[in-house]
Design a protein around this nucleic acid. Structure first.
Lengths: 341, 341
DNA sequence: GCGATTCGTCTAAACGTTTCGACTGCCTCG
DNA sequence: CGAGGCAGTCGAAACGTTTAGACGAATCGC
């Protein structure tokens, strides 16, 4: 493999001149620069990564800790992973993928061996051992998601609380007073995943504040679980006219199936909102109003924040991404304007 | 960060002694080794990755080129990615994730800069620019999937041809003479993905050999597409008693829904087989007989083959993984033993 | 016409490993 | 008892960069 010596020889200059020409850190005569560029092209030269790391103290590699938990929707997870890689490449960073097993040991290994310049954490739980590790390692790091203790951490995530508020208000504005909420699988809550309770609690709080009645239930991912969840909310709230889904796409689709089997028409009989869906709801029948969970926005911002830490101009802080509401026709004013209460 | 000098100082030996003690490449007195281990522990020392790469000519990093194409089932894709990472870790290798955009340029970059020791290619198409690049780079590489031109390449994959034969024979053995085959989405075939036509062609060939009638159709992923696919095969084959699904899980599930809506009972009226599914079919209703596509097996083998190339004892070749047939009760002897023809 | 400045280039010193060759005792064998 | 071997350790030379410092030549201000 061609090295900088070869380039220098071909271009007829010293290696430092080559280095400066390529980095642009000192001015180089146009003619010299041209000869060097030519030699680089001819030899297909690329600076040796190891040498660059060793001397430069920058590896241009980020560690991405992306555990895939049971109950996490794989396509959504994939979307985050790919978004991180794509965003990192914008800053000339590559991404080393770390998984489940080895979650903390792998992070420690790559960090202590100076293999990576920084860390991105995906899918943190409310109390996640990786956050302690990140604090200990003292490496630039960004967490996508909000753990309970954010001290000393840089975190970014969709504002799930605000998303919940948005969903409640939309339905309330349309006159709905009895609203169901179908959440993630029970084990997602038990495991301590960070965003489901954030959404649920804010949802319940806003509903209470506005004086509307809510029935919440998690929904297991298989069709029996979904059926049970729908039954639970309808039984708890016989007068339910609005329903919010904070669950993954297959479950959303199954909920719509169950509703249609029961002869419930959306939005005529029931207004339905999809909250924090990573993907378009356009293929659902009917397409659901949605508050999107924009993987690329979170990830792009996470990378920006990591780069800011490299530059040294970034204090640890928590950053929320504003949710938006997208109307696709699955909500309507409350059907029978019967006086409530 | 502690370096080897620090360890040497704390242990009271020279750095070469530390290096030998840790690598085990020369014998070291037990007492010395112990002092060194102690110092390593105390300082939480890990060899600097850059220095190791530079000198050792081994980076302990693999590039994984994992483009996520439209029509690829994300969970299956994820399973392959995670399996590759897990398998690589068994050999103390980390994995650098490369995506879609940058497919060839990214591979070239990491290879030419000696950032990675080897390459794993996922989801190759029949004619994939990445395979030419791999040949050009001359780096150890393993392809998961079989492109048209395998010259000079090391490839590993499930034997989709054999899987197709297995599926046909199973149904034929049970007396079925008219068999439907529902495949991937049309764009998957158009894009040149490697395994769908391998399966389809072998399926048609084996069926022809055994003199049974087949109707094949691809199935677009939305429910209208699935409905159309089912209609197509039933219209083409009014006497169809067997159906093979070579498509992703959501489509399989939708096919079963359509069948049940039409009052077709599995396996009483129709025997159904799921071919090359990455995930268990246990949650389907009914659970389908399946010829699994074992991501971990392919990936583990791919890593083994890459490691063998490092060791120098491996010629480029194509390796097939034997498919297995798992009975879960979705096939039965042909229902009405009416004489066909 | 001369010191100061700027530009372009070079020399050489790091960076933290791995590993080859060499050295020192000590043991063994003839 | 001396030659040879071996276990245990060390010194020093790579590996391919980046970058601080030095230096000559051209340019500029006065």
């Amino acid at each position: 493999m061609a090295n900088i010596h070869d380039v220098a020889r071909v271009a007829g200059v010293s290696i430092s001149t080559v280095s400066y020409a390529l980095s642009g850190k000192r001015s180089i005569a146009a003619s010299t620069k041209q000869r060097i560029d030519q030699a680089v092209l001819q030899l297909d030269y690329r600076a040796n990564a190891g040498a660059r790391m060793l001397k430069g103290a920058r590896t241009q590699i980020l560690a991405l800790s992306a555990p895939l938990h049971a109950g996490t929707h794989a396509p959504a997870h994939m979307a985050f992973v790919l978004s991180v890689v794509t965003a990192a490449r914008q800053y000339d960073y590559d991404v080393l993928l770390l998984t489940q097993d080895e979650a903390t040991s792998g992070l420690r290994r790559v960090a202590r061996s100076s293999l990576v310049d920084g860390i991105v954490l995906l899918d943190v739980s409310t109390s996640d051992p990786r956050t302690d590790l990140v604090r200990e390692l003292g490496l630039p790091a960004t967490v996508i998601g909000i753990p309970n203790d954010t001290a000393g951490l840089t975190c970014v995530d969709l504002d799930f609380e605000q998303a919940a508020v948005l969903a409640v208000r939309r339905l309330v504005d349309l006159g709905h007073r009895e609203i169901g909420l179908i959440g993630q699988a029970p084990l997602v809550y038990e495991r301590g995943s960070n965003f489901p309770p954030r959404f649920r609690d804010a949802f319940l709080a806003e509903a209470a504040r506005l004086g509307v009645t809510v029935a919440f239930t998690p929904a297991a991912e298989e069709s029996a679980g979904v059926r049970a969840a729908v039954e639970h909310v309808t039984a708890a709230l016989p007068g339910m006219t609005g329903l919010v889904l904070h669950c993954n796409e297959p479950v959303q689709s199954m909920v719509l199936d169950v509703l249609s089997q029961r002869g419930i028409s959306v939005p005529n009989d029931l207004s339905v909102i999809s909250a924090c869906s990573s993907f378009s709801t356009g293929h659902l029948n009917p397409p659901l109003d949605v508050i999107p969970l924009p993987a690329d926005q979170s990830c792009t911002r996470a990378i920006e924040l990591t780069m800011a830490q490299f530059a040294g101009d970034a204090e640890p802080h928590v950053e929320y991404i504003d949710p938006t509401y997208v109307e696709l026709g699955s909500t309507a004013p409350v059907p029978t304007p019967a006086p409530h209460r």
